[in-house]
């Protein structure tokens, strides 16, 4: 599995909704993730990739699309 595949699995597990095919599409504006699902996604990403997201990186913009999440994860593992 690619990093994006694993991220899709994490986000899909939390969202329980179909994910956008375009990785650039906003997960917030499309209604895939609400404000309470986002902390769960971050927590699951930490487990899946054995990384620690510091408070200073808890900026929703870093996690508002599959592409941005992939960029964040690949930059921090």
């Amino acid at each position: 599995m690619t990093t994006e595949d694993r991220i899709r699995a994490v986000v899909g597990k939390i969202a329980q909704k179909p994910l956008p095919s375009d990785p650039e599409e906003s997960l917030f504006e499309s209604g895939v993730l609400d404000s309470f699902a986002l902390p769960d996604v971050v927590g699951e990403l930490e487990k899946e990739f054995s990384l620690k997201v510091p408070d200073s990186d808890l900026n929703p913009r870093k996690f508002d699309s599959l592409a941005r999440i992939t960029h964040y994860v690949e930059s921090n593992i």
Binding site: F28, S35, F36, L38, P39, V42, D55, L58, P60
Partner: peptide
């Protein structure tokens, strides 16, 4: 900004 507030 609900996403930022809840995340933090």
């Amino acid at each position: 900004d609900g996403y930022t507030v809840i995340l933090q």
